[in-house]
Design a protein around this nucleic acid. Structure first.
Lengths: 211, 211
DNA sequence: GTCAAACTTAGACTCGACCTAAAAATATGT
DNA sequence: ACATATTTTTAGGTCGAGTCTAAGTTTGAC
């Protein structure tokens, strides 16, 4: 059930899904999210409208495909932290690596993509929702890692702080991309901002969730 | 222009607006946000559909009328803080007062209202947007009060921390209301949680923005 | 009282989201 | 290889939010 060679049907599904996503992204970048209808996407991908909404229940999902990595990233960073490393240090380390790599997941998505998001309130709302889910995932991870009592406030306050700083820096990268700055420069500037921001959290979180 | 006795037209506008809002709220609480159409509201208020969307561009605005107080509250608390009081202390103080007063603005809105919000993803998304706007307003206030350089990261990190804790406690109140607990008990429990949460922020913010 | 501005109305339209029934494609058992 | 079952795709429709326009009505100013 879980194994076995993928099979024709499964392969075709992946193909169709990828094809629809590609066509959608192309159209969105060309014309802007709100100026492309689901029918347009279906026509470009040569499938029925229903097939598009079948693979992507919400239109926003057509444009934002990195959801999983985005939401689970920081929680995973905490779970995988080194011995002696605090949650703050783990999140900071993984963020600085992502910044240096110009990782699309944390906002390095190119000017066209940044414009697409900023121009659509539906998309910014969806991104906001992802930030929220990410913070919840982080809170769960922190609760498990610290063995906190269920419903305890500690992990949630820590998640608010770490997740909030990540959100703040994501916005910063997006904004600077919109402003036309090159990725190299943005990485330099935001890297410094990240260090500064996490330093401000250190008095509260320096010794939190050390493995 | 800004003064002069209100005038018949202005009074009627306020009246119409209030009347539509009342009818809408009544219907939403009776049947749930998603089970009431704008046409239903228009019919109940005996106006044209267009008049409803004229006063309330988004359907969610029909249900969430406390926006202004919600968004500006914490920023105002910071601006009005006492001499020698930190931003954290000011926000905490105003929150504890609001909790003791069972203030609807911070989540004491009754079980029916809480159910209405929780049941509608459109409404929870809008609430999330308000949290975001509130944090931005707070960041602006903190930047002004500390005389930070434009674009500085300090006030934004502080706003993330304070705004995040407020959001967390708002959710807590809503959740406990949904769970059927009486306001009195919720106020007691959340009051304690608030003190605990702000205490966790103290190492980072104890001396921030003291007037 | 007349006229201009502001507000309301009816009706149409687009689009996202949802549903259903049928058709097409693929997998499975003999 | 064939018949049958399951999954996926399709066509067509409904609903409701949001937007627009043109015409009607009310109010305020001169």
């Amino acid at each position: 059930m879980s194994e076995a060679p993928p099979g024709l049907r499964a392969r075709k599904k992946q193909q169709t899904r990828a094809h629809i996503s590609e066509q959608a992204t192309r159209l969105f970048l060309e014309r802007g999210f709100d100026n492309v209808t689901i029918a347009d996407v279906a026509a470009a991908a040569q499938v029925a409208k229903m097939t598009v909404t079948n693979y992507f229940p919400r239109k926003e999902d057509l444009a934002l495909d990195l959801q999983e990595a985005f939401v689970q990233g920081p929680a995973a960073a905490v779970r995988d932290r080194a011995v002696g490393e605090s949650a703050l240090a783990a999140v900071r380390r993984s963020l600085l690596i992502a910044i240096a790599a110009h990782d699309p997941v944390i906002g390095f998505s190119g000017p066209a993509f940044a414009r697409m998001i900023a121009a659509s309130s539906a998309l910014t709302a969806r991104v906001r929702e992802f930030h929220d889910q990410r913070e919840r995932a982080l809170a769960r991870a922190l609760a498990e890692e610290t063995g906190a009592a269920p419903g305890a406030i500690g992990p949630r306050v820590a998640a608010v702080q770490l997740g909030g700083v990540l959100r703040l820096l994501f916005d910063e990268i997006l904004w600077r991309t919109l402003d036309g700055h090159p990725d190299e420069e943005i990485a330099r500037v935001v890297s410094a901002q990240a260090r500064e921001a996490f330093t401000l959290l250190e008095p509260a979180l320096q010794n939190y969730a050390i493995r």
